[in-house]
Design a protein around this nucleic acid. Sequence first.
DNA 1: GAAGAAATCTGGTGTATACCAGTTTAGCCT
DNA 2: AGGCTAAACTGGTATACACCAGATTTCTTC
Lengths: 240, 240
Amino acid sequence: MPIKPHVTAAQVCGFLESRIKSGEWGAEAKLPSERAISDQLQTSRVTVREALKRLEANGQIYRSNRRGWFVAPPRIDYDPSRSAHFTQYALEQGYSPYTECLMQRLIQADDDLAGKMAVAEGTQLLELHRCRGINGRLVYLEEIFLRADLWPDLIEQPPDQSLSTMLRNHYGQLFKQVDVDISIASLSAAQAEILQAPAGCSCFYISRRTLNQEGLVIEYDREYWRHDALNIKVTHQFAE
Amino acid sequence: MPIKPHVTAAQVCGFLESRIKSGEWGAEAKLPSERAISDQLQTSRVTVREALKRLEANGQIYRSNRRGWFVAPPRIDYDPSRSAHFTQYALEQGYSPYTECLMQRLIQADDDLAGKMAVAEGTQLLELHRCRGINGRLVYLEEIFLRADLWPDLIEQPPDQSLSTMLRNHYGQLFKQVDVDISIASLSAAQAEILQAPAGCSCFYISRRTLNQEGLVIEYDREYWRHDALNIKVTHQFAE
DNA sequence: GAAGAAATCTGGTGTATACCAGTTTAGCCT
DNA sequence: AGGCTAAACTGGTATACACCAGATTTCTTC
């Protein structure tokens, strides 16, 4: 008959959750360290970590590599079918958006990319890597692929402005259709490092193919979102 | 200077992944037990579990409570904006769909539901809980809410047939618009038990509001999907 | 005060062990 | 062959401990 029954991970979850819900720990607040929590609740650090991972799984908290655990801010609403700019979405919802171009280069389409963009293998493509954040926190990485023949001067452009606006205004392209794929993936080691997330962290994977009126794929992009940062909203109107 | 460097979780991931990708362990195959893997690779069970959880996070494997770990079958493609029946989707993709009605009752709309369905608080609603699977594996739970005044006889109907077909044919309703919300949540203890998933397991949360031509909310449902079972595909056509 | 080095703190990852609660299997009995 | 029981097996969860690497803070030095 154990004198002191074990403190369970579920109990630790409850303890932490009540403090988050009560507002004692507001958005972006730093939680006590794992060791401090395990001392306070008379349990082991392993149990505390188990509890923290469960709260992380449903997006209530997140961690920043070796800096600590933080209360997750509200999710951003996002409609991937609208090809709309992240910047506008973020501003409309009262956030401070941030974009950084990580890489920009010309590549040749491999088998997979050629299929996705409906071009011949070896076709020259412009590849852009960007990361984007709100309120100082990086929330997703994106890899953009554009047909080099359609955007001959694009590599000269400043990469931080809204790409969709630029494509629309400067190149006069009109979007006709967007195909969106959403699933769950995990971050590669390199991606995890950029987002300051742990190795193998699960994320939202969103890929989009944008077609113009002639049916050409004018943009193909892959986004890797922190799973706790995003709420996807899609509205579909049925044809009459 | 350590004589035997530690076996890392990443190495265990590599070991398991190579066997899955090579086809040595096909879809639905049972992996060796955690203890057998840790013995074979000369590492601890904790490290093996860490590796298994990473593969679980990106949907390569899944676990069934206290039965073992299994190779995840291909994801099912699903377009939540089409209000289409799961059964049809599954059949088209060559799966054997399965549906079971777990619960069916009349309730009164609380504050939250009243808002979602655009009715007054206290309005009588029909609530249905179902679970659905493909090829013998449960993949999601759904909670459906219908206005009792619009479907007076529905509670008498056999619950296992396609609800959307039934609504369309039997009640002559035409769908006009669907609002879809997608995010990540975690399963409640009760939900986890039904899906044979571990406590606090992360899942896709999809909620849908279907409006008819008069703008009435004729159906509101919440779906909780195994995160590894689903690939969401949405196509959006821009207006001319 | 600014710059740089060192100590401290934090999560990340590994070791070994233990016991519990369902699932599956093996064996026994009828 | 069928049915029951008990043993073995599986993952789930907890203990305690140790060391690493990066982030942060503090202290020292100029």
